[in-house]
Write a protein that binds this DNA or RNA. Structure first.
Length: 297
DNA sequence: CCAGAGACCTGAAGGC
DNA sequence: TGCCTTCAGGTCTCTG
């Protein structure tokens, strides 16, 4: 559920409250939360103790806090970013620290001025770890080593539309799957993939390798457009599983045209939308606007 | 190298 | 009413 727009909304909220903050009394409360950190959750909590957050950055669905270590436990070889992936249900909540632990709280730390930060994650697909940053010459950015395999996202400066189209055409897989492949383009999840395909009038089972440069440019342009619109209203929330750093939902769900709308009339032509499984993921589309061509393979 | 399937996890929703 | 099954989704890992 948290896809690029939702993660960016979270990042912006954290910039306000975490920049310059020092983490104290760090607790990592679930073994799966620290599973990507050598030594696990207890070692992670110890390593984060006393770390100060200098900057908060993002690529696709990966979020990271650049750390400046006053911490004696931050080993130089592992400095200097706290990498956060929200998984399916992760939330980062800033509060005044007075209340007891939130339900499904997986990490908690004090950040000064009586405030605290909580990582809440019902399904524990998310994780926190400490990772080193590596210089990426192509985009001139420092990127965590665990996100090295992730392609630039469609809203970052270094995003190369032409190169991404070329990469999409290399893959003989359904376009829907190609859009969800974070190594081709990052930040796209099931919601925005379905929305962009609907807007581009393309069926998700069309092979990426079989589409024209113009068609692929159109769908990528729609990915950018739908994400910008979602970002402007705080992202997409269906339930309490996605909220910003202040615990508030986003309002893009009311603007969706395809995702989660099986059986409802298409907003363009009125034909009821249908759903099918593509590459193990549900794909909701308009059978009239998003036609499969006669020759599909 | 590339594609596809399974594993991980919890709570909501549906079936009987 | 209540138990059981199914589903949802993002990534990582394994298999073919």
């Amino acid at each position: 559920m948290p896809e690029l727009p939702e993660v960016e909304v979270v990042r912006r909220g954290l910039v306000t409250h975490l920049t310059g903050a020092t983490l104290r009394d760090v607790d990592v409360l679930h073994p799966r939360t620290g599973r990507r950190y050598p030594g696990g959750s207890a070692a992670l909590a110890q390593a984060l103790e006393g770390a100060t957050i200098a900057k908060i950055d993002r690529r696709g669905k990966y979020l990271w806090c650049v750390l400046v270590g006053e911490s004696t436990h931050l080993t130089p070889s592992l400095a200097p970013a706290l990498l956060i992936h929200l998984g399916m249900s992760g939330q980062l909540i800033i509060d005044d620290g007075a209340a007891s632990l939130l339900p499904h709280c997986r990490m908690h730390a004090h950040i000064g001025k009586g405030r605290s930060v909580s990582f809440v994650d019902q399904r524990t697909f998310g994780y926190l770890t400490i990772d080193k940053l590596l210089w990426e010459p192509r985009t001139e950015r420092w990127i965590p080593s665990l996100a090295q395999h992730i392609a630039p996202d469609p809203l970052e400066e270094g995003f190369d539309m032409v190169a991404t189209v070329r990469e999409l055409r290399r893959h003989r897989v359904p376009l829907k799957n190609a859009l969800l492949n974070q190594e081709i383009i990052s930040g796209v999840g099931n919601i925005y993939a379905d929305e962009a395909l609907w807007a581009a009038r393309l069926h998700g089972t069309r092979l990426a390798s079989g589409l024209s440069y113009a068609q692929l440019t159109t769908v990528l342009t729609e990915v950018q457009a739908v994400m910008r619109r979602a970002l402007a209203v705080g992202g997409t929330s269906f339930d309490a599983l996605y909220v910003n750093a202040a615990g508030e939902p986003g309002y893009f769900a009311r603007s969706l045209h395809a995702y989660g709308k099986v059986g409802e009339p298409c907003d363009r032509c009125g034909t009821p939308l249908v759903s099918m499984v593509v590459g193990g993921r549900s794909h909701t589309y308009c059978p009239s606007c998003q036609k499969l061509p006669a020759r599909t393979r």
